[in-house]
Write a protein that binds this DNA or RNA. Sequence first.
RNA 1: GGUCCUGUGGCCGAGUGGCUAGGCUGAGCUCUGCAAAAGCUCCUACUGCGGUUCGAAUCCGCACGGGACCUCCA
Length: 490
Amino acid sequence: MQDNLIIYNTLSRTKEKFTPIIPGRVGLYVCGPTVYSDVHLGNCRTFISFDLIYRYLLFLGFKVRYVRNITDAGHLEGDRDEGDDKFAKKAKLEQLEPMEIVQKYTVGFHDVMRAVNALPPSIEPTATGHICEQIEMIKIIIEKGYAYVKNGTVYFDVEKYNKEFLYGQLTNRKLDELLEGTRELSGQDEKNGRLDFALWIAAKPETLMKWPSPWGYGFPGWHIECSAMSSKYLGEAFDIHGGGMDLQATHHTNEIAQSQACNHKAPVNYWMHTNMLTMNGVRMAKSAGNGFTPGELFSGDHPLLDKGYSPMAVRFFMMQTHYRSTLDFSNEALQASEKGFARLMASIKRLDNLKTSSTSTSNIKELEQDCINAMNDDFNSPILIAKLFECSRIINSVNDEKETITADDLVILKKLMHDFAFDVMGLKSEISNSSSDKALQGVMEVILEIRKDVKAKKDFAASDKLRDYLNKIKITIKDTKDGATWSIQE
RNA sequence: GGUCCUGUGGCCGAGUGGCUAGGCUGAGCUCUGCAAAAGCUCCUACUGCGGUUCGAAUCCGCACGGGACCUCCA
């Protein structure tokens, strides 16, 4: 069952058979958010994509150690390797301690992840919690000759590294090409090479977040945290490293360089990159003014949104596109997903009331295999969803007594729908069980009972009046041959 | 400018060289007191021009369009 998984590896730019280092176990590292502001929808897409991947690995029976970091220090605003980091800047703006910024947005991030039903990672390490590990790693890189110190700042020597290793392998680029695209060093720059990047950055008097180090007070560069934390928890070489495609060229390239310089071995076997989320064809970003927060998306409180969309509709919407394709956001597309999701959930609810027969008109086992094949092929959730809709059609047809299913097949079908819709795709029915909802259920039962009575007396004016009144307060009544059902309109 | 991805029916979105994904929308039918739901049927596409092939949405070339990265970014 674990032998047929195919993963697209950025390193080779091809789909490869997945073979873990230790059979039955997977080490998975994903670059998490930098918590200096609200996560936006694009960030969420990456984490939802990897949640699907994590869930499917678990479904296949792998023991997965899933590490996703929180960047809470050392992420600079520009490429100058100087000045304040993003947290300090925001802290000054909001007149808070940098760690208050970190706390505020970490909590917000977790709230959103919970709303979209993303499983928490096994370990969620922070950069500030691993300063020692980062310093140790930098020391080794210096000892091995791939870094140099200038006025308390430590730089990684890319050209030196490239003589022994391939620096641009993740983007299939040669060093000369990279150098061409880089701007000239300015007079103030203390780096030796244009591509060199900081491992440790010397603190200035006004720097808020700083730690002692062999090179004086300072803070870590952005890339070193991932190298230090991934090797600490997953080993010097591990199975899968993921992140957004925008991290590929710089962050991940530098991560490989650091780890390789330190340990002299390739840190990761499979690199996975998720594609961007766009709004009307343009990448969603705060600077473009076309972004909104998940909270705004759920409430609909934003000029670009026609209405609010439930977290599960959003999750379903994202799963309808493969993780390596760009996903274009629009109200129309999201509303289509919302309806499709409701239809899928409605059919799953019908599963419990299906009548079985001595024969099946559909090949359920084949469908089950189709679902597995879809996910084995580089986590192809759009095809999986197409197959689940096929299951929906079968369920509805059996429910209408136009098709039949055996008791054995029904067991398989139930398991299939629950496994893939809930466990693998992480969807969940959005009906809550709060006490007020239970009271509402009771009231509705009474109303439907009364309506049933007047309908029996053919008093359709009265029954329609009940239905119309309920419809005005967004409750829909449907008469089926097994009695009436009700639901709340979104 | 460089590296790379991409162009599918009204919309979204899969796609292994041949056996018409799927969802949403629209039309018709069945069911139904009506409505809704559900099912069935229909709308059968692949940017353009060449090439390879018995056969291409799928491979190759060119053109045009869109996007990403090369600067912080999931």
